[in-house]
């Protein structure tokens, strides 16, 4: 992450920290809500509680962005880099085990 990160990266970091902070509580409510052996009223209340969590607590909100440039598309997930940063770093020999193919 560069020192002048974009607002989108900051938002993503916020979402990631929110997920981490609320994960245990969310799991507990999920367990109650999805448990068919519990009475329906209890499960319904648990589902209502789940709905009160904000969007920055859901594990599907964070999006993998480029760790160098913050770009949101064209990310090569094994390296966490966008395609151009991947190319640049690979050609510079900064990615272990990556070499340019030619055939």
């Amino acid at each position: 992450m560069p020192p002048n990160f974009s607002a989108r990266v900051l938002r993503d970091i916020k979402a990631r920290n929110g997920v981490k902070a609320n994960e245990v509580a969310r799991r507990a409510y999920l367990y109650v809500a999805r448990n068919q052996t519990l009475p329906p009223e209890v499960r319904y209340q648990a589902q209502l509680q789940l709905n009160t969590f904000g969007k920055y607590t859901r594990p599907t909100t964070p999006k993998n962005r480029c760790t160098e440039t913050g770009r949101g598309r064209g990310i090569i997930s094994e390296f966490g880099l966008c395609r151009f940063q991947f190319r640049t770093k690979a050609l510079a020999g900064q990615l272990a085990g990556v070499r340019k193919a030619s055939w």
Partner: peptide, 27 residues
């Protein structure tokens, strides 16, 4: 095969690895 919700307790927590996606930056 009644659903007990056990899989939500059994699954590993994903938050810690999610939170360290971006490498720490010292300003």
């Amino acid at each position: 095969g009644v659903r007990t919700g056990a899989k939500y307790l059994r699954a590993r927590l994903r938050g810690p690895s999610m939170a360290e996606y971006y490498p720490p930056v010292l300003t």
